[in-house]
Design a protein around this nucleic acid. Sequence first.
DNA 1: GATAGTTTCATACAATTGTTTGAAATGCAA
DNA 2: TTGCATTTCAAACAATTGTATGAAACTATC
Lengths: 220, 220
Amino acid sequence: MASDHTRSAILAAAERLYADRGFGDVTLRDIVAEAGVNLAAVNYHFGSKDELIAELFVTRSIATNRERLRELKAAEEQGGGRAPIEVILRALVGPTLRGCLGPENQRSTAARFMIRASIESVPPIRRIKNREIDHLRKFAGAMRRALPERSEVDVYWGLNFALAMAHHTIRESERLTKLSEGKCDLDDVEDVVERVVSVATMALTAGRTEVKAPAKVAAR
Amino acid sequence: MASDHTRSAILAAAERLYADRGFGDVTLRDIVAEAGVNLAAVNYHFGSKDELIAELFVTRSIATNRERLRELKAAEEQGGGRAPIEVILRALVGPTLRGCLGPENQRSTAARFMIRASIESVPPIRRIKNREIDHLRKFAGAMRRALPERSEVDVYWGLNFALAMAHHTIRESERLTKLSEGKCDLDDVEDVVERVVSVATMALTAGRTEVKAPAKVAAR
DNA sequence: GATAGTTTCATACAATTGTTTGAAATGCAA
DNA sequence: TTGCATTTCAAACAATTGTATGAAACTATC
């Protein structure tokens, strides 16, 4: 094992390049050049290109999920097992948004890598990705506890829309800036978070404030 | 020109394969095999692989935009130059959702291709994609006319969120089905359209029903 | 300081990719 | 039919990719 220097240099370079340019057009030769190591080092340390990607994704996936669950657990414990829906949604979309948006220099490579992974899903990632469903299920559970009158289906849709707004805004941030001629300030991350959270909250609570009623009609 | 048979067979096969498997892992050999034509035919008729993709994208892009604008124009003319925001949003997200979701057999290859193009944007598409901004600007204009009291920034955010929900739902439809254990019915396209439209409408009108007031505070 | 195990390196390999080539086939006008 | 342009085809080409190899360099233990 010795220094591990080569190994971690590869991981860092790969994550940076994948985050910037996507999996499609980053070759092993690009990675080793960026890392300043030999081409054969990748196969020596990771076995194959796919295993490198998988290791990268697993590591980051665990970290991101832990971050989100930490916020969620803290909120629920504080509220005696039930957190306000806004807080839950903030725990869901906040970390990713904060990691990907914001002033240029503080953008997180890890977060941008995860967004790439969620977009152009390559085989090694696709194989692992199913686990994330369990993670989302925990959020769905918390949301149902926060909105007991709400139908299960509506909660899933709200969760889906919250992730939709967060991810899409990240992916298309450049286009939104161009479309709005800079008027939408994507560097003001907390403003973006609040916009997403507030719309998702409305989607989950509108037309159903206190009522106990059947399912289908909701969220209209 | 003669029959054009080969040319259109290539276009059809390419669109189908790209829609199904993405640009990343579809080779020219896959396409010509599917089309039942010779490998060299692609370069003979289109010049290069990139030009084939570009032609496909341009054709579909024009058709999709025309479809959306047709709905929009019809609505605005009927309302004397100003359509209700719900109708505008339906014109924006309806065609794409209807094309991509719904019972297996009636899903549109064209719509799925366009979603692929919006996801894993390859160089030839990226070069053209800027034009779509002009198209979105027309929708932004109609939305501003429908919501004159609303700030410009809020309208752009509403537009962004509407597209976000539509596209994300299409992209992650499989995951939503799995997460909800089939309870979210993605075959009921009109239900999905109404959900997206209603949430986007709320995002654009909440907390600002009749008031004439400054910007920032909105959509909270 | 010799030796065994680990890591790095230049280089080669095999497979796949988009593209080109030149001949054969086809269609069409005179 | 003849002649000419268009279209199709099998085959080869050149470039790029991930991977494998075997020797060299290094590290640590005795």
